[in-house]
Design a protein around this nucleic acid. Structure first.
Length: 274
DNA sequence: AAGGCGGGCAACCGCGAGGTA
DNA sequence: ATACCTCGCGGTTGCCCGCCT
C-alpha cells in the first residue's frame, strides 16, 4: 500500500513564506513549543503542510541561526566533517550550531564542491608532488587544519554564551502593519531581516526554557546536536567518539599533540594524502 | 535596453526510521 | 506482529537576481 504524500490534500499552500505566515508560526511555537508538527497547520490556520512548517522553523525561524556568508573556519570545518561523515548534513550541522543542515548543504553544493574540484584539478596536475608527500608532511598539514577546525568549534561554542541583545528595536517590520513588505523573496535583505528579528525575539523565550535537550536541539540539528549529546553522554560516563573527543579536547583546555595514530580515516578520504 | 544564462538559495519531495495503537 | 502515523534527512527542483553579451 503506497503512502500518500504528506501534502497531497488540496488547499495546501506552497512556495515562499510570507512574513505574516512566519508570524503565525512563531506565535504558535512561542506558546506551544516546537514539535507536534501535524497539529500546527490546523491550530494556526496556516494553509501549509506540517513538513513545510517544520522546515520553515528549523531552517529560518528558530533562534540562534546565523545568516550570511560562511567564515573560513566554518568552511574548513565543513570540508573536514564532510570528508569524515560524508553527506550527513544534519550531523555536520550539529558541529556548527549556528548553521542549518540546509544551509550547509547548499553551501557545499554551490561553493565548496566547486572549490574542491578546482583544488583537485590542481592536485592532479601536480600529482607527482603529492604522491611524494610523505606521511609526516600530511600529518602536519592535517594538524594545522585540525587546529583551524577546533578554533571554529570554539567560536561556535562561544555562541552558547549569553550575548546581550542589542538595544535597538528588534521588530520594526513585523509589528508595523502598514510596513511595505516585499511581495516575494525579491528583496531578500528586508525579508531576511524580518526573519532574523523573529529569531532574535525568540532567543529570550528559548533562554527562559532551561530544558537541556531542547537547548541542544535548537542550536543544532533537529535531532539534537551531536556535540550536546556527546557532552552530556560524557558527563554520564559514556565515552565520547574519537571525533567528538578531539574536537572537544582543545575547547575544554586539554589540548594535546594530535597524530594520525589511532585515527580511523573514512574510506573515501583523499588517498593522495596517504 | 533587453534577452540569455548561470549561480545561489528557499522550498519541496520521497524515503527511511522510530513510535504507537 | 504489523499497519499506520509522524518526523527527520538528503536529494532535487524551481524561482529570483545579477552578470554578460
Amino acid at each position: 500500500m503506497g503512502r500518500p504524500p504528506c501534502c497531497d490534500k488540496g488547499g495546501v499552500k506552497k512556495g515562499p513564506w510570507t512574513p505574516e505566515e512566519d508570524l503565525m508560526l512563531v506565535s504558535y511555537i512561542q506558546e506551544h513549543g516546537p514539535g507536534n508538527w501535524r497539529a500546527v497547520p490546523s491550530n494556526t490556520g496556516l494553509m501549509r503542510c506540517s513538513k513545510s512548517c517544520r522546515l520553515r522553523w528549523t531552517n529560518y525561524l528558530r533562534p540562534g541561526i546565523k545568516r550570511g556568508s560562511f567564515t573560513e573556519q566554518e568552511e574548513k570545518l565543513i570540508i573536514h566533517l564532510q570528508a569524515l561523515l560524508g553527506n550527513r548534513w544534519a550531523a555536520i550541522a550539529s558541529y556548527l550550531p549556528e548553521r542549518t543542515d540546509n544551509d550547509i548543504k547548499n553551501y557545499w553544493n554551490t561553493h565548496l564542491k566547486k572549490k574542491l574540484t578546482k583544488a583537485q584539478d590542481g592536485t592532479e596536475r601536480s600529482s607527482n608532488h603529492h604522491r611524494s608527500m610523505i606521511k609526516g608532511q600530511w600529518e602536519r598539514r592535517l594538524q594545522t587544519d585540525i587546529h583551524t577546525a577546533k578554533q571554529a568549534l570554539r567560536d561556535a561554542l562561544s555562541f552558547d554564551e549569553e550575548k546581550p541583545l542589542p538595544n535597538e528595536d528588534l521588530h520594526p517590520i513585523l509589528f508595523k502593519p502598514n510596513h511595505a513588505l516585499p511581495s516575494s523573496s525579491t528583496n531578500n535583505v528586508v525579508y531576511a531581516s524580518s526573519t532574523e528579528n523573529i529569531s532574535r525575539l525568540l532567543q529570550g523565550w528559548m533562554r527562559s526554557k532551561p530544558d537541556k535537550t531542547r537547548a541542544c536541539s535548537d542550536s543544532g540539528s533537529s535531532q539534537g546536536s551531536v556535540l550536546c549529546e556527546s557532552v552530556s553522554s560524557g558527563e554520564e560516563g559514556k565515552p565520547l567518539s574519537w571525533l567528538e573527543t578531539w574536537l572537544f579536547e582543545e575547547s575544554t583546555g586539554q589540548d594535546q599533540e594530535m597524530t594520525l595514530d589511532g585515527l580511523q580515516l573514512p574510506l573515501d578520504y583523499p588517498t593522495e594524502f596517504l
